[in-house]
Amino acid sequence: MVCCRPLAPGSSMSDEPVAPPASSEPAISVALVEDEAGTRERLVRALSQTSRLCLAHAAGTGQELLDWLGDNSVDVLLVDLGLPDIPGLDVIRRARALSPGTEIMVITMFGDEANMMRAFEAGARGYLLKDGTEDDLARHVLNLHAGGSPMTPIIARQLLARLARPMPAVAPPLPARPDVRSDALTAREHDILVKLSRGYTYGEVAGLLDIAPSTVQSHVKNIYSKLAVHSKAEAIFEAHQLGLI
């Protein structure tokens, strides 16, 4: 594994729980692919703000990244969805096949929630919005690696509509597919999504539901996994409908 220079620890302003960096822990290796040079440089700079992260590779095209991934492995991978050569969603799928243990994070324009949902279905577990908050990248990466996944209220709202339970307390008035499969939300997951969609932070949700903040984090992670399962179940369902299987 290639790794890089240790850097000065950065400051985190988040109220979200992050394990404070301990000098004894090994550094987290990161690779990224971003076609726009300026953004790439900013990302690299943001990553270098904490000593706990080390940049292993910064690629400009999807193919370059996948080639590199063939011989290397990293803890966290950052993928821009709008790559010129290979669609970002394909890069995510192939990267997951190459290196199943890698946490994948999407770099995307803000407001592109629909694509983000598809990225989650493809296997991404976190995202970074190119909206000027790139400075928080290090914190997001550390969070992701520590088991946390971010979720905006809009994504929470869309997940509610997509993974709706048959009888939720506050049902989004959307036509949802009848879901009695294993990818349906549990009552607790549903409550968490409802609170997140109303703007409560992870910490506040934990307080309201009287559970540990880390439990909220793992619930959110489960919900993202369900989205991947859900998309597979949908694919199977649709294949049935089309008479393919």
């Binding site: 407001g111 929630e113 209220p153 809009i154 709202r157 869309q158 509509a161 989004p172 008035p173 959307l174 969609s197 109303r198 703007g199």
Partner: peptide
């Protein structure tokens, strides 16, 4: 963004 009529979102 789609908010499904939810002002809370």
């Amino acid at each position: 963004q789609p908010v499904n009529g939810d002002l809370a979102t």
